[in-house]
Design a protein around this nucleic acid. Sequence first.
DNA 1: AGCTCTTATGAATCATTGA
DNA 2: GTCAATGATTCATAAGAGC
Lengths: 295, 295
Amino acid sequence: MRTLESIIKQGDCLEVLQKYPDNYFDLIITSPPYADCRAKLYGGTSPDDYVEWFLPRAEQFFRVLKPAGTFVLNIKEKVVKGERHTYVIELIIELRRQGWLWTEEFIWHKKNCHPGKWPNRFRDAWERCLQFNKTRKFKMYQDAVMVPMGDWAKTRLKKLGENDVIRFNSQVGSGFGKNIANWVGRDKAYPSNVLHLATETGNRNHGATFPHDLPEWFIKLFTKEDDWILDPFVGCGTVCEVAQNLGRNSVGIDILQEYVDLARDKVNEKEMLLCEAIAPYGKNNKKRNNRLHRT
Amino acid sequence: MRTLESIIKQGDCLEVLQKYPDNYFDLIITSPPYADCRAKLYGGTSPDDYVEWFLPRAEQFFRVLKPAGTFVLNIKEKVVKGERHTYVIELIIELRRQGWLWTEEFIWHKKNCHPGKWPNRFRDAWERCLQFNKTRKFKMYQDAVMVPMGDWAKTRLKKLGENDVIRFNSQVGSGFGKNIANWVGRDKAYPSNVLHLATETGNRNHGATFPHDLPEWFIKLFTKEDDWILDPFVGCGTVCEVAQNLGRNSVGIDILQEYVDLARDKVNEKEMLLCEAIAPYGKNNKKRNNRLHRT
DNA sequence: AGCTCTTATGAATCATTGA
DNA sequence: GTCAATGATTCATAAGAGC
């Protein structure tokens, strides 16, 4: 039987990673603490200091990533005094100076972003997913993220009412209505670099998760089974959980013991459920399922 | 009767604009040449020289823009040797140094682009629309770009009960709640900073136009009737055409006589059509309509 | 199961007030 | 004078309840 590991470590990734060898991970994917949020705990402070805070950690990421591996950084700059702050784009420039190749910028379109309207601004409905690599010859399994036409039509069409289809067509687009004819006889379609995903609701334990679908998409795209994945700011453990579900090994690191406990619970629960699948009438199943649904 | 002007000038905007007074335009919106043949005529703009080439022109834009005006720059960096080039984000940083405020970055999601892929890359389905301002107090007419509201609000409003009028505060705090009474009588919602617009096809005269909807959206958002709009790289004249349709004055500049002719044809045709509406059986109507359909 | 209807809430932003 | 805390604004989505 295949052994799968999901390791959660407490500490600052800057230090924890120093115990890992070079060229160890196939994928690093993370949604780091944004400026002014958890960054303070790491010693990082204002948006102005963000780049300086990030760079030494990125140096470790570079070292532990395999030459054909990929680093995906989900991030969005804040508005400061009416302006978009430049720390994210400055970070891109500095990471390139560090040796990273800025291969691509994916857009995560947050379909259900926070509402609000302001005198000079609309709702912010997107985030950056920056792709960095060490070399031009990185591994990419494009077929793994193809959208199966059949499934897509089945699930999506079934779930949406007629009105939703019309609305989907007019707002989100992708030529939904018009191109139905094109699907006939085709199994799969390649996606683009714009991802339409909803944020997940109902997570009361951690205010800053990305949705499962986001890491899942990148994990499928950049790794295969038994590969090793790192999330240096693992938060409540979404990346490790998804990695586990997809048969990938993972290491998650967080400085806050509170999050480490949450993440460990999550991956341990999964392991136990897998064991119980053999003896499905374990007395705690019901409770555990409830907890799973909540997170 | 109101007079509306659509002026197309031939030349390098760097020079042409020097004849315009300070604080003249309400909106500058453009999709500049990045690497096509036009760029070479401006003095050569390889990606590495792009920022240096752009900055003196941006200085003129700054001068001729009204204090409460807006500058919208539709641009997307090329892939060079497998990497996204950094000239766009470097440009943002340099424009800020020039005095511009980087207020927002809108995403134009090109929803009907061809599916396609390369060994290490998917279809690029988005472009940046960078918003810059001279001051924080710029003019913005948000109501002009509202979109039809989602379904649930309508159904919810039908059942407006007495309890709905009070404010419900969210349990988790953050000061967020909802006041349903605000939605009474509303069937439209404010958009976000992600624009889902199809690219236009069938333009054989000019390969790199943006769709009419894109300038239209920004023109409605940032100007009112009789305002003055500038497109310093006007190409085949889309911005002036849309401005004209929306009752805004415009100045379009291009270095290539070929494009200047195209753009002039376009705005002149519109003017003539407006005149002919009074005497609709002019002998050239048929031919003219054909031309209109083609563009 | 498969619908419809209801409800909570999400990595937000700005103006105002208070220290 | 600056900086931190508070209040006001607002909509798509999915889970849950009800039939």
